[in-house]
């Protein structure tokens, strides 16, 4: 039965792998700098590592927003988020899994009469605004550094190409790790409070129940990468934003850094120990980080051709996605409880 309940989360994971892996390897694969097989292998391995090793931080914040405490509830919340993403994507509306899951959890809070932690909600919503802005800032700085570096060094074009490929592989691995660490909360976060898994000892490594859950979610992401992301990568690489291999490296690095700073407990502890303001650990949208990074690169190159309209579309998604997801979640929970007699909260 537990596998049935996990299906909605695993489906979310699959769609995340199918869509968001393109934000990391899209340009590299689309421009044939990296073969899809290589990208898929690196992406899958590092997504799993990121999810299992560093996935807890962002999931914890999501858990504080609303601890969905029954498997039936977790299933419905994840399903509501998945349906929202699916429906909005079909209508070509800007949508992010991170924002859909937050809306769905709030829907559960309303349904179960649980209070919504406003502190966590404010933290999460402010991060959505901050995420593309930070990605733009990172990309802006990285563009200037890369430009200065390329001007000062007289590397042969072919060597530069080889270094670029290596950099795209490394930054892709980092990006996949960060994606797993940050976005696993979207996929499996709602199942944490209701996880039925016990700790598992493999040789000297102990995996907690949550880590097993994350591992399964990450496998679903990896399946999404292998089965469907090739098509999305080709689209991202060729159609949406035509980036050169160098700018692709900058965009992916900026995006990965953003995902990492919003997922790394280690970085948070380091900043706090030095009395510096720390980044909240919150699942953010990799697609919006990419858009922010592309704008950052464009601004660094003089701001020509920046489509500011896209910022308006993103902002509208911050409001519409959670509201739609909350409504869908509330309605589905009602049906699950009253039609299918499923326990959706304790």
């Amino acid at each position: 039965m537990i596998w049935f309940f996990l299906i909605s989360g695993l489906f979310l994971g699959w769609s995340l792998g199918a869509n968001d892996a393109a934000n990391i390897f899209g340009t590299a694969v689309g421009s044939r700098m990296i073969r899809f097989k290589t990208a898929a292998l690196i992406g899958s391995v590092f997504v799993i590592l990121g999810a299992v090793i560093s996935g807890a931080g962002a999931a914890h914040t999501l858990g504080k927003l609303g601890a969905v405490n029954a498997l039936g509830g977790s299933f419905t919340v994840a399903l509501a988020a998945a349906l929202t993403v699916f429906w909005m994507t079909k209508l070509k509306l800007p949508v992010s899994t991170s924002q859909a899951i937050v809306g769905a959890i709030i829907g559960w809070n309303f349904f179960s009469h649980s209070p919504t932690d406003m502190n966590s909600l404010t933290k999460i919503v402010s991060t959505w605004v901050f995420c593309p802005a930070l990605a733009a800032l990172f990309a802006f700085i990285l563009t200037h550094i890369t430009k200065a570096h390329l001007k000062s060094t007289k590397i042969h074009l072919l060597e530069q190409d080889a270094y670029n490929r290596l950099a795209l592989v490394l930054v892709g691995a980092f990006g996949a790790y960060s994606l797993g660490a940050n976005n696993i909360a979207n996929v499996m976060g709602v199942f944490v409070a209701a996880t039925p898994f016990k700790d598992l000892q493999i040789f000297s490594i102990t995996l907690s129940g949550t880590q097993i859950l994350f591992f399964m979610g990450a496998i679903a992401i990896a399946v999404g990468i292998y089965t469907y992301s090739h098509k999305v990568m080709s689209t991202v690489g060729k159609d949406l934003f035509k980036l050169t291999p160098v700018t692709a490296f900058i965009v992916v690095l900026a995006e990965s850094l953003v995902l990492y700073v919003f997922a790394s407990k280690g970085l948070q502890n380091f900043l706090l120990s030095h009395n510096l303001p720390a980044f909240p650990l919150v699942p953010v949208s990799s697609s919006q980080a990419v858009i922010g990074a592309v704008i950052g690169v464009s601004l660094a190159k003089g701001g020509k051709g920046v489509n500011y309209g896209i910022l308006g579309r993103i902002s509208s998604g911050w409001v519409s996605t959670p509201i739609i997801a909350a409504v869908v979640s509330f309605v589905l929970l009602f049906f699950m409880q009253n039609v299918f007699l499923l326990q959706v909260y304790k």
């Binding site: 042969h156 072919l158 060597e159 190409d161 080889a162 490929r165 290596l166």
Partner: peptide, 16 residues
């Protein structure tokens, strides 16, 4: 990766 850079060097040499 060394093989990869070797290929690059080889083509660089041919261009020169």
């Amino acid at each position: 990766m060394a093989v990869f850079f070797k290929r690059t060097k080889e083509i660089e040499g041919e261009i020169d």
